[in-house]
Design a binder for these strands. Structure first.
Lengths: 252, 252
DNA sequence: GCTCGATTCAAACGATTGTTTGAAAACATC
DNA sequence: GATGTTTTCAAACAATCGTTTGAATCGAGC
């Protein structure tokens, strides 16, 4: 295990012609190279189907480096997630706080609009989607898939990572939609998070069929700008009364 | 390979006290026992993390039976999906056709409402959710997770399975929302499918936090009845004009 | 120059994976 | 009851997995 603090840079005396793998040469220290390669490969093949040998070869480091720096494959996966997820959720909370302070100062009784709350959720994700330099776009897909992964250690990890954010945003939506029961708000927040992560997961089977313009398929920015109004309208949908329930699924 | 047609029943002369595995004894012929066990275990652990030995032990059959009856692990997975997915999508198309014939006969110019089209998508899923006898509820979760699986053979399979259904429903939504550009309709249909499969996937990390009543967490019927109005409102959301785009994500 | 902790490396570990094999058993047909 | 096909079975296959080991190499501090 590394006591952190100091870490050696990769060997400088590399043979000039050497090509470590087919992938583009990674840069930075060993830990970052592993994280970068793992982020891309986990996104591409999933957790179980990605071997440590594939990751270390792509990163140009020794196989044992993963266990040395991260402890295990599972801990590596968590490190890949937490590197970007933690700052993103911090941004979300910070943005929500800024909005609340802003409207509270102006109109006294501050209740944000659904659009504002959704913006606080989406803008930090957009920042990653626009991050062409780093693997931000890769990460959004990886995150979307991690939600659906059945592995207990992944679900537990995400649950902890999102606990604070969910609580804060549920309260905000509750104030924005005071006519809705608290439980209905929880469900609709759940739908919002679901649609967001699913669409960000990206290369699903359905996109192939759905007749999109080619330049839009992998443009997360346009995607989020289409998704946001859709979800805002869903959040504001009138509450389904028990007496109206027969309107739905009458034949089921 | 089996020439199908006739298949032998499992051995009748079992020792009375024998307990093949910890799981409840499966019933039916070998092929069905494998499908049932695989459906539950794939749902629980995912495709990669589920070994054939785990499946065959739970089903009480020999390890080689999978390769004999299905050819490979991948083909087994496809068989598990197609067993319920094919009838469900057939039901959806049939229901949509029935609705269209009904309204065309009454009002001449027949354009279904969003609620009717969503019902045609949801009712067949509800039928599986209510199928307490068989593994219908398991299957919905398995299906939701299969959408997010990066394995190429899964994505290709689902793409083929859904091609006809997507085409038909996109046309229906297009007639129900004539003011929307065709591409916007495609995206919103994509959002609907995403929210549906994500919420059906079930045991995601977020449910743990979201403060649901315990009796509702695993009730797919209540879930769908809450999701349907949410999505119907989203589908009918006014089109986001380019001049209004600044309203969203101004700070991003 | 030497020591000491941090890091890298090649090699091997034991376990598990999906698949194949060939013989034994159960079946259907005559 | 013999024949031929279908199905089951125990055993082994080669490959790959995550992890561990112990020595080699590096950089910094005295």
């Amino acid at each position: 295990m590394p006591n952190s603090a100091l870490r050696r840079l990769p060997r400088v005396t590399e043979p000039a012609v050497e090509k470590i793998s087919d992938k583009v040469a990674e840069t930075g220290d060993t830990k970052s190279r592993i994280l970068d390669a793992a982020e891309e490969l986990f996104m591409e093949h999933g957790f179980e189907a990605t071997s440590l040998r594939l990751i270390t070869t792509a990163a140009g480091v020794n196989l044992a480096a993963v266990n040395y720096h991260f402890g295990s494959k599972e801990e590596l996966f968590q490190a890949v997630l937490t590197r970007r997820l933690d700052p993103m959720n911090q941004d979300r909370l910070q943005l929500l706080t800024a909005y609340e302070a802003d409207t509270a100062g102006k109109s006294g009784k501050g209740a944000l609009t659904c659009e504002q709350i959704i913006s606080a959720m989406f803008i930090p994700a957009l920042k990653l989607a626009r991050d062409h330099e780093q693997g931000g776009k890769n990460f959004l897909r990886l995150l979307g898939r991690a939600y659906a992964d059945p592995a207990p250690f992944i679900r537990e990890f995400l649950s902890n990572q999102y606990a604070e954010m969910i609580t804060r945003f549920r309260a905000a939506f509750g104030r924005a939609l005071p006519h809705l029961p608290r439980e209905e708000v929880s469900w609709r927040l759940h739908f919002v998070m679901g649609a967001l992560s699913y669409t960000l997961a990206g290369t699903d089977a359905l996109k192939m069929i759905a007749q999109f313009h080619p330049e839009e398929v992998n443009n997360d920015e346009l995607l989020l700008k289409r998704l946001a109004p859709f979800l805002a309208a869903g959040l504001r949908a009138p509450l389904q009364q028990a007496s109206d329930a027969h309107q739905w699924f009458t034949e089921a």
